[in-house]
């Protein structure tokens, strides 16, 4: 299990090669290739239905690619998925929290799934404190507002200190105060690689090292370092009818 060779400083964190995915006959991702170094942030732009969430699910090891190769944190998917599980944090549309458990119980459950020392109690308390939920630790999820659930989901995704953070519109459902509390937790950090899906083009360009634009049919519009993409070009993936028929 232990890897004797020290990892190179700027190893590749993500690599996709001709990645395609189909649900039955419907192709939602077509021939996506990309690369990202460790510690960098990739912003994924594209209109609804462009395959962004599918791409994230594949990178999170939840979905097998129909065609093409993917490598996440040096492990080839889906063959070596078991190796990277536990190093990925996913914050998607679903909070992945049990409605009938309270905040602390939910985090404790996830801590046990990740074999965190001491049931992750300290880590959970620290995270609840930082998202401003300490006083709600005993509140059941089904009694929480959407914003509170979002904040708890952030704790859940960060609980095991993931090396790769996959964020699907992470600040949705949050009021300005919530954004202020949560955004720094999800921001760039040493050794943390991030994949960020957002409709906020300006925010994406401000945070990202590389930008991937997906057309409506799931093809790559562009995959470039952030310096080579201007906001106008980035916005075009939302307006243009791709592959006009």
């Amino acid at each position: 299990m232990s890897d004797p060779a020290p990892e190179p400083a700027d190893a590749t964190a993500l690599r996709a090669d001709g990645l395609s995915h189909a649900y039955g006959d419907r192709w939602v991702l077509r021939d996506v290739s990309l690369g990202l170094d460790e510690g960098q942030t990739l912003a994924v732009l594209g209109s609804n239905g462009a395959g962004k969430s599918t791409l994230l699910r594949i990178l999170a090891t939840l979905l097998r690619p129909t065609e093409g190769g993917v490598e996440v944190l040096g492990c080839e998917l889906p063959r070596e998925a078991w190796k990277v599980r536990g190093r990925i944090g996913l914050l998607g549309h679903q909070p992945l929290l049990y409605r009938d458990l309270d905040a602390r119980e939910n985090l404790h459950f996830h801590a046990r799934l990740f074999a965190l020392p001491g049931g992750g109690e300290e880590r959970a308390a620290e995270l609840l404190e930082r998202v401003g939920l300490s006083h709600r630790a005993s509140t059941r999820v089904d009694e929480m507002s959407a914003g509170m659930i979002r904040r708890l989901a952030v704790c859940r995704a960060l609980l095991h200190e993931p090396d790769l953070l996959i964020l699907d519109e992470p600040l949705a459902n949050l009021d300005p105060a919530g954004v202020e509390e949560v955004a720094p937790l999800l921001g760039p950090a040493p050794g943390r690689t991030r994949v960020l899906v957002t409709h906020d083009v300006d925010a994406a360009l401000a945070e990202a090292d590389r930008v991937l634009g997906l057309e409506r049919d799931g093809r790559v519009a562009f995959a470039l370092p952030v310096g080579e993409v201007d906001a106008e070009r980035a916005r075009r993936v939302y307006s243009e009818r791709a592959g006009a028929r």
Binding site: S20, D25, R30, D31, E67, G243
Partner: peptide
């Protein structure tokens, strides 16, 4: 047959590779 029919339907929408 259905693959061929689909390819005829939207051959311009398919990527080149594969």
């Amino acid at each position: 047959l259905s693959r061929l029919r689909r390819a005829l339907d939207d051959d311009d929408r398919l990527p080149d590779t594969g």
